Each structure stands twice: as C-alpha cells, then as structure tokens.
Simulated scan of single mutants.
Amino acid sequence: MEYMGDKQYWDEKFEQRSDKPLNPEKSLVENIKYLKKGSVLDVACGDGRNTLFLLQNKFKVTGIDFSNKALQRLERFTKRNKYSVDVKQVDLTMPDSLKNIGIFDNIVINYYRLKKEQIDNIKSNLSDIGIL
C-alpha cells in the first residue's frame, strides 16, 4: 500500500503552503454541469480548492478532512470571500467515519481512496438519484 502520510505530515504540508488556495481540480471544473444543484460533500477536501469552486457555483458544501490545519485554511479562505461552509474534522481511516456525516445531493472525492467498506456504505450519504 502506498504511504499517504499521517496527520502530522498533512498538517505540516498545509502550514507550508502560500496564503492562496490552489486551483480547483480540472475534472471537477469540466464536469460541474453534471452535478445536481444543492448540497455537496467534499471528501478529503484539504484546504478547499474544490470546495471554494463549488461555493462559487452556488452549492451548499460540507468539507471533511482529518487535517485541522487544512480546515483552518479553508475557513480563512471562505471568510475572505464571505462564503458559508460546514467543515468537519473526520478521520477517514476509520471504517464508519462517514456514518453520521449526513445526506447530500452530490459527493466529490479527489485524490483519496476510500476503503471497500466505505465505498459499500457511501450510498447511504446520497440523496435519491444523488451523484458520486
């Protein structure tokens, strides 16, 4: 299995970044038209490059990540732009980590590989005909 880093690794990585968010993922920009209007769960959102793009496009976004430093940066970026975002610190290495997150119209996952149990259960986080 590929080493993805522990919480300290990711906290340090986000602390070293500039005070400007990265650009959103190209595939999200190209495919945003396929998302349902409404809510989005951004899984492993980091400091919010995709969350910010979704907020700009009038989605209600919940961002989850296990790095507190990343979530602090995301909150700072959203305040600058007067956006409202719900952030939750979640350890996705735990099999039931998505259990009480809520139900969303869309779920976006970039650069994170969920465990098999999480993939099997994630449909319970989607509304009827939700988009993953």
Score class of each variant (00 low, 15 high):
Q16H: 13
R17T: 10
S18A: 15
D19M: 13
P21H: 05
N23W: 09
P24E: 07
P24H: 07
P24I: 05
L28C: 01
V29G: 07
V29S: 03
N31S: 11
K33A: 14
L35F: 10
K37N: 14
K37W: 09
K37R: 15
V40D: 02
D42E: 09
D42Q: 07
A44N: 05
C45D: 05
C45R: 03
N50G: 02
L52N: 01
F53L: 02
N57V: 01
K60F: 11
G63K: 04
S67D: 05
S67I: 00
A70R: 03
L71E: 06
L71T: 04
R73K: 15
R73S: 05
L74P: 04
F77C: 07
F77N: 02
F77K: 00
T78H: 02
N81T: 09
K82S: 14
Y83L: 09
V85L: 07
V85W: 01
V90H: 06
T93Y: 09
M94G: 09
M94V: 13
P95V: 11
P95M: 10
S97K: 00
S97I: 06
S97Q: 02
K99T: 12
K99M: 12
K99Q: 14
N100Q: 13
I101Y: 07
I103V: 15
F104C: 04
F104W: 03
D105G: 09
N106R: 00
I107G: 00
V108T: 09
R113Q: 13
R113P: 08
L114E: 06
K115T: 12
K116G: 06
K116R: 12
I119K: 11
I119T: 10
I122R: 04
I129P: 09
I129W: 12
G130M: 00
